[in-house]
Structure formats: structure tokens, C-alpha cells
Design a protein around this nucleic acid. Structure first.
Lengths: 340, 340
DNA sequence: CCTCCTACTTAGATCGATCTAAAATGTTTC
DNA sequence: GAAACATTTTAGATCGATCTAAGTAGGAGG
């Protein structure tokens, strides 16, 4: 890169074209790997690009073409490793196609989510992967449809008219309950947490349903604090129920981590004094002792599937809405035993 | 939104202007909240925008103005909660300014990182927050400077000519070593992990330095596997050293989690049979039992500071390069005791 | 009545790519 | 040698905003 060339704030396609003695149009064709240009011309232009240090300006291109190569991802909480894994899957698949992911954190706030969607619209994203904030009105789906913006819901859903990718929470609950029942447990609690949204509801309903199908009492449902740090301290809630549970199924990995710590603090041995089943099976759960028996929902996979679904939706907007539900798997480790 | 208006693929500023009986220029001034337009005109234009459902097209604007309102963030590993927290801090600060964050995962691969930087350049990002992949050649810094791209290094650094935000790893190591020494430990191991990069080196050097200043042997340096799942299984490495350590300082929270689990598996009691100090103090460490004494580096804060530094750098490219080093704090909990 | 000033408003060029429709070039066919 | 054809190349309009430089209107001052 010579001195003069660096002075120019930006090397444009026109500069490249002039340097290679062709027109702007031809240079553009080379850029887009069109078979129309002759091979000698092509290499001359490519050399010119290298000589001048040309950088493609996607922004300029997208003014003409209807494609920004940007995908949005909105999650309710970034610090939760579960969502980090989800994002990782999304970024992986989107990145492979040469597109780019805009990341945003709704903090589970509906207004903030609306603002972020607006911002993404202004950036002309090709589509959005959205984990809807709790209490998102279903009308949002219609609004989004009006905008003509391709959106895939992940993990939570607010509408059946929009693509959705999630896990089979109900089946996961059945796996957990069936396993505990097979060990002889009858008093099984569900340790819930966080705001109510579709995934929450599905887990609770799945739990109820599974318990009833085993003719067990589905009524032990305990609400734990939202913050990880406070969950351990709230462990006593488990023992303040009308019937004291012999096993607990956790809403997610945060509850599992918290209770695992809290039970230890109470001097109880997990798996002997009380059985514990986690949900989501994030990497950390492998590192707790005793190792946590857990229902895995596969956040990375869900992220990948959501990304793929979105790409298909963008390519073909008239597809009917689809629902993809990832299978859950019960990973049996060491946190469950027979009831005392 | 009426039928005809929806048919038009996009409502432009010109449409708004016509609808409000003003020129495109005036509408643009309203958009940018210029004090030049009369209040009556302003509200007429604003009403027109609402009537037509106008959406600002940042992409078009940025073709004229040198500002894309996009910031890039490149991290080596998204699934590591430490980086997720970092990102959370970045997104928070950047989001407040109305800008947007493009997220990318280098997988700690230099070539992939180069490709991502290129892609971000094509998207015309206003700046990038980069946690350089291990083995990134220092020449990259010059290349970036040639591009004229504002970049802030986080957590790891490859050049002194580029802004940098990190933690005071050396001080953190001193805190950890001093604390253990005060408890009477003399055989202290450093449990390392992952590829060598500046943050790695600083921790190792800090450890050495701290040990030497206490006249202790700084030579017990053990390399653990990269994957969390494999660390626990490698715990035995601790006991295969020439001198068996009575305390271990962990490279990061992954090693701490892994060893905490591994020691439990060996039937050892942490804090009594062996003292353990974590590093990074991610939220999870609160949930391990016994609670982990840990050096906190504050990833969220570092992310916030990096974002602020980048914004300043963008506003004022001629600032001399700055280095911001976040203080570390030793959080004393329950994982350390006197040597057996 | 003319000049000057203030407060708005606007026409038209511009950013850097793509796309259409047409032109230039070279080859083959009759 | 002209017509027909395939292969490359190109001029110029276009996308949707911003910016410059110039315009209009209305009032104050002389």
C-alpha cells in the first residue's frame, strides 16, 4: 500500500476498476464471481484489489440488494450460561454462511425487547432469532408479520404462526418423573424459578401430567428466587411443604446448582437424603459433586437448529410456520437414590 | 397502515416528506432532531412518519456519514461463562449509546480471527473489542492500525500501541499467594490450563514473582486439560509432583470447578486436606461447596470498561494508547485452611 | 422603499455498490 | 462479405439517506 493510496479514506470499486483499466460494472462482476468476465480480465481486477487493499462495502451493496447479511439474536439474559451456549450454536451456523450476528440482551423486559427489535429493523437485519421476554404479548407476532421480518422463536413461544425451535420439556419432565418413580419416589417436588413464560408453563404442565400418570400428587410446586446466589439460602422452602419431598426436580441448571449447594449447607447428602434432578444440563453440571443426574435440552443444538430454520425462512418466506422440538435425554449420574 | 402503503416494499424519507408536504431535506433534519426546523413542521413530519410506519435506514445513512453504529466483539470461546459475562458488560454499555454489537467467536484460531476481522471491516464497524486468539502475531496490531480501525484489546494483549483493558493478574496472584502464605502454606502449586497468551503469561509470572517474594519454591506448575470435563479426571497430576503441594491456585474458574470436583472424587476434603483458590470468580463459584475462595477479576466490569474505552477512542482517534487494569479482589470463603 | 437579518426550507450532489439494457468484440455460418 | 451469434464489457440509473450552498419569507431599522 503506497502512501498516496493510504491517504484516500477509502478504496472504492471505482478505484479498483480504474487501476485495472476496466469499468466499475466489470469490477463488480468480478467481486460477485460472475462467469461473465473473461479470465484474463478477472485476474487483472483481482490483482488490482490486492494492490490497492480494497475492502468490500457490504453497506453500500445492500442499498441496492435486499440483503444485509446481518442476523439478530435477542436473549433475555446473557450471563446465564444456558443462553451463552444457545448463542454459540447460533453464531456457529450463521457465521458459516458468511453472515454476521447482532447480539442483544432484552433483560426479559418487554419494552426493551421492542426497542431492540426496532433497532434491528433499522439495521435492516435479514431476520431475527428471538427468545421472547416473559409476558410478551402474542400481538407482537402479528406486528412482526406485518413488518415482513423473518423471525424464529427459540426456547419460548408466543405464537403458532411463527417458526419455533425448543426442547420437548414435557417429555423431559416425564423422563425425570418416571425415573424417580422407578426408584420408588412418591413425594416429588418441582423447584421452579423465574418469570412465567411458555417454557415455564410447559415444564410445570409436563411435571403435573407426568405425576398424574403415575397417580402421584403433582401439587408440590415451590418457587425459588431468581438470583443464583439466593437460591441456596432458600433451600429450607423444600422442608416447609405440607408433605416433605424425597426427591426434587429442578426447573433449570441454576436451581440445580443453587439447591445442590444449599442441601450441602443443610448437612444433607444428595442422592441419599434427598434425590435431585437437574434440567438443561449445561457444562457446569458435570462439575458438581455428587454428579448431577439431569435432563439435557441441548442449548447448542437448539441454537444451531434455530439458525438453520431462520436461514430457510429467509430463503423461502412463504413456507408454512414450523415447530422443531429437540428431544431431551435423561443423563443418569449420581444425585438420585431410593427414598430414605 | 393501509393496504397500499404496505404494498410498497419500504417507506422512505421521501415518502414521509411528500406526505407531510415538505422536502426530503427537511424530513431528514427532523429525523436528526435539528433545531433548524419549525415546531409546526416538525410535528407534521413526525406525524407523517407514524402514519406511514417509517423505519429509519441506518445502512443508507451510513453511506454518506462515516458511522455505522456497529461495534464488533471477538472472543475466543463463547460457551465459557467468563466470556459470556464479558460480553454482557460490552453489550450493556454499547447498547446504551444506541449502537449495536456484532458478536463473533474466533475459537482461539488466528486464521479464523483474521477472517472475522475482515468480515467486520466489510460491515464497516466503527470499532472492535478484541480478545486476541492465542498465538496472534503482534504484527496484527500494525495491520489494524494501517486499516485505521479503532480496536481495544481485552483480557489479553499483543501490542502496547493499542488500547487495552484487563485485570491486574499479577496483583491477583500476589493476593492469593500472600493469603496462602499467611495461613502457613509453603508448597503451593499453580494449576494452569489452555494455550499460552499474555493473560496466561501474566498469571504465571505473577505467581512466580509472588512466590519468590515469600522465598517459596515457584516451580510447581501443572498443566491441566483444556476441556472442563477432563480436568476432574486429571486431578491426580497434583500428587505426582516432586513436592506434594498443600495448596493450589487455579488458572481460572474452569480449573477451579474441575479440581473441586476431582478432589471430591479422590475423597479429599477441600480446605482441610488441600486448600484451593479459584481465579475469575464467575457466578458459579458461589454455588460450589465448600464455597470457593477466589480472586475475582470482574469480567462484566472489564467488558464495560473496554466498551467505554472503545467509544472514547472512536470519538477521538488521536488519543495516545491507554492501558486500563482492573483491580482484583480476593474473596475469602471456605476452600482454604492451614496446611495439614 | 430598500437593506439587512433571522428563521426556516430546499434542490441537487453525493456516498459505493448493483442492475439493466445496450454496445463492443470476436467467431462462425451461409 | 454480410448476417447471426456468443462472449465480454460498459454507461448510467438506482438504492435511501446526508450535506452543502442557496433560496424564501417576514420583520426590524434606516
Amino acid at each position: 500500500m503506497s502512501f498516496d493510496e493510504r491517504k484516500k479514506s477509502r478504496v472504492t470499486l471505482l478505484d479498483v476498476a480504474r487501476h485495472a483499466n476496466v469499468s466499475r460494472a466489470t469490477a463488480s462482476l468480478v467481486l460477485r464471481k460472475s462467469p461473465l468476465v473473461g479470465s484474463e480480465t478477472r485476474s487483472r481486477v483481482e490483482q488490482a484489489m490486492r494492490d490497492l487493499g480494497y475492502v468490500y462495502n457490504i453497506g453500500a451493496a445492500r442499498l441496492r440488494v435486499e440483503r444485509s447479511q446481518i442476523i439478530g439474536a435477542i436473549v433475555p439474559n446473557l450471563t446465564n450460561p444456558f443462553f451463552a451456549e444457545l448463542l454459540s450454536g447460533i453464531e456457529e451456523v450463521i457465521g458459516e454462511t458468511g453472515k454476521v450476528v447482532i447480539l442483544a440482551n432484552s433483560g426479559d423486559k418487554v419494552e426493551r425487547q421492542a426497542m431492540l427489535l426496532q433497532r434491528m429493523r433499522e439495521h435492516g437485519v435479514d431476520g431475527v432469532i428471538l427468545c421472547p421476554a416473559a409476558r410478551t404479548p402474542p400481538a407482537l407476532a402479528e406486528e412482526i408479520a406485518d413488518w415482513g421480518m423473518p423471525v424464529v422463536q427459540v426456547l419460548r413461544h408466543i405464537s403458532f404462526d411463527m417458526d419455533y425451535v425448543g426442547a420437548d420439556y414435557a417429555a423431559g419432565m416425564h423422563q425425570a418423573v418416571d425415573y424417580l418413580a422407578s426408584l420408588g419416589h412418591e413425594k416429588i417436588a418441582f423447584a421452579a424459578h423465574g418469570p412465567v413464560q411458555s417454557a415455564y408453563q410447559e415444564r410445570v404442565d409436563g411435571f403435573r401430567d407426568a405425576m398424574l400418570s403415575k397417580a402421584l400428587d403433582p401439587g408440590i410446586l415451590i418457587q425459588f428466587p431468581t438470583q443464583l446466589g439466593e437460591i441456596a439460602g432458600a433451600t429450607h422452602l423444600l422442608f416447609e411443604q405440607a408433605t416433605r419431598p424425597t426427591a426434587v426436580i429442578c426447573f433449570n441448571h441454576l436451581v440445580a446448582l443453587g439447591l445442590s449447594a444449599g442441601l450441602h449447607d443443610c448437612g444433607l447428602t444428595i442422592g441419599r437424603d434427598l434425590s435431585l434432578i437437574g434440567f438443561d444440563d449445561v457444562a457446569d453440571e458435570e462439575a458438581i459433586r455428587p454428579k448431577l443426574t439431569s435432563v439435557s435440552t441441548g442449548p447448542v443444538t437448539i441454537g444451531e437448529m434455530a439458525a438453520r430454520l431462520l436461514l430457510e425462512r429467509i430463503a423461502n418466506p412463504d413456507l408454512p410456520p414450523r415447530r422443531v422440538v429437540n428431544e431431551t435425554a435423561l443423563h443418569i449420574r449420581q444425585s438420585c437414590g431410593r427414598p430414605a
